[in-house]
């Protein structure tokens, strides 16, 4: 990322697997500095992270493979520090320093 690190940025690790890595430069692990507040000054939560990833990290044009109706596509699991994001408040979870967010597609097989 070209963004200048600032004190306010939240360093996190985002991982993609289950086929999603193909949409993210074929790279499983991404270290990011997420702005600490969202577009409207709200705290950076996972809903903002998903939009941020879509706009800033995802180079693949097929955005609908990752995001549908403004949120993660049904069939993609989101784990916050190994736990289902439902247990952590879903898309309202506010990201903290060194969080690990894992996106896993259940939609691919082999």
């Amino acid at each position: 990322m070209s963004t200048e690190p600032s004190k306010a940025d939240v360093p996190i690790v985002v991982e993609f697997t289950g086929g999603l890595e193909l949409l993210f430069s074929n790279q499983r692990k991404h270290r990011l500095l997420l702005p600490s507040s969202g577009e409207k000054g709200q705290p950076a939560n996972t809903a903002f992270l998903v939009r941020y990833l879509c706009e800033n990290v995802m180079k693949d044009k097929r955005k609908e493979m990752f995001i549908i109706d403004g949120t993660v596509r049904p069939g993609i699991l989101v784990l916050i520090n190994d736990a289902d994001w439902e247990l952590e408040g879903g898309d309202q979870y506010e990201l903290k320093k060194n969080d690990n967010i894992l996106f896993v597609s259940t939609l691919h097989g082999g």
Binding site: T17, G18, G19, L22, L77, L79, D84, V104, S105, T106, H108, G109, G110
Partner: peptide
Amino acid sequence: IVYYALHKGLDYFTTE
């Protein structure tokens, strides 16, 4: 099934 594979660290293939 995906949770199981993840939490058991199973090695599986995911390209279409």
